[in-house]
Write a protein that binds this DNA or RNA. Structure first.
Lengths: 115, 115
DNA sequence: TCGAGGCATCGACAATCGTCAATGTACGCG
DNA sequence: CGCGTACATTGACGATTGTCGATGCCTCGA
């Protein structure tokens, strides 16, 4: 299995060469695959959609935890993966951690599929 | 880990509810995640880009095998996963198996990210 | 009919993943 | 200070994954 990047740069830069626009280099493929792998789990996709569906555009772990029927630790783990993949941001405010979508991150990924 | 679908329906129908367009149901999330998981590996992304970059839009295993520095069995394995995910088609012609992109499959996936 | 090429499948292996319960850490309120 | 809340981290587990070498199945040409 490929070695995993500990932290991914923002999704916006040179990361997302289109899959159908010429042969991907090893580095390009690895970077893109890391982000798709982060979205390759039902729980994480539901987390993304739950956050996107909020009024304020952000949500804390306690809210997400109730909606997902997963243990609190597991939800926190998944959110951490999505942050590392550059899809979510984490903002600590008082006692809570608020997670929000990185603006344009998924759109940039989408463009890597369209070409 | 979630149970895996043995075969996915075509990408075009009701599969790809947008991630940012309301909370995903369990089934929607599972179906979408299965396709993203198929793209969550560098070798498979390179296979997709190699096929997309061909003149004819298709390629046989022997060609892909040389370009990827993987064993023949491994390449065949990855191609099978991409077929099951509804991203590639397989056409046997004589002695060779030709793999081609499913038209619109990746574009539909892209639309699930844009919303 | 035989041999060789092209591909799929099998068995095995280490590595990674998703999940949980338990514990650790930081903050806010008495 | 001490307690409770919100969250992160740890350790452990079964399951899945990516990879290989070996083997089996077709198809073609001699």
């Amino acid at each position: 299995m490929a070695t995993e990047l500990t932290v991914l740069e923002p999704v916006s830069t040179s990361c997302c060469s289109p899959v159908t626009g010429g042969v991907l280099s090893d580095a390009e493929a690895t970077s893109l695959a890391a982000r798709f792998k982060a979205m390759g789990d039902p729980s994480r996709l539901r987390l993304l959609s739950l956050i996107a569906a909020t009024e304020t555009g952000e949500a804390c772990v306690c809210d997400l935890n109730e909606s997902l029927d997963l243990s609190q630790g597991t939800v926190s783990h998944h959110l951490g993966i999505l942050v590392k993949a550059g899809l979510l941001t984490r903002t600590k405010r008082g006692q809570w951690s608020f997670y929000a979508l990185v603006p344009g991150a998924m759109a940039t990924l989408a463009r890597a599929l369209d070409a």
